[in-house]
Simulated assay, not measured.
Amino acid sequence: MSGTAERPLRADAERSVRAILEAAERVLAVDPSASMEQIAAAAGVARTTIHRRFAHRQAMIDALATSAARQLVQAVDDGRPDTAPPLVALHRITANVLEVKSAWAFALGLPADPGSEAAALHQAIARQCIAVLERARADKLIDEAADLQWIQRVYYALLGESLRGHPDDAGLDTDTLAARIIETLLHGAGPRA
Rank of each mutant, 00 (worst) to 15 (best):
L90I: 03
D82C: 02
Q58F: 11
G109W: 05
G115C: 04
A131S: 09
R53Y: 15
I130F: 04
H187Q: 04
I20Y: 10
L158G: 06
H166N: 15
A41W: 12
A46M: 05
M36K: 03
G109E: 04
D31K: 15
D113N: 09
R164L: 12
V97H: 00
R47W: 10
A157Y: 06
V73P: 01
V17S: 11
Q123N: 11
L133E: 00
A69L: 05
L90Y: 00
A68T: 06
L64P: 08
P8A: 07
A112I: 02
L159N: 10
I182K: 00
E144G: 06
Q149H: 14
K101P: 00
V27E: 04
T49R: 10
I20V: 15
R127D: 14
A105Q: 09
R192T: 11
A126K: 08
S35W: 07
I61C: 03
E161A: 13
A23Q: 03
P86T: 01
K140V: 06
R52L: 08
D175F: 01
A179S: 14
A146P: 02
D31C: 10
L9D: 03
M60W: 03
R10P: 02
A5G: 13
I182D: 00
R52T: 09
R26D: 10
Q123K: 08
G165W: 04
I130Q: 03
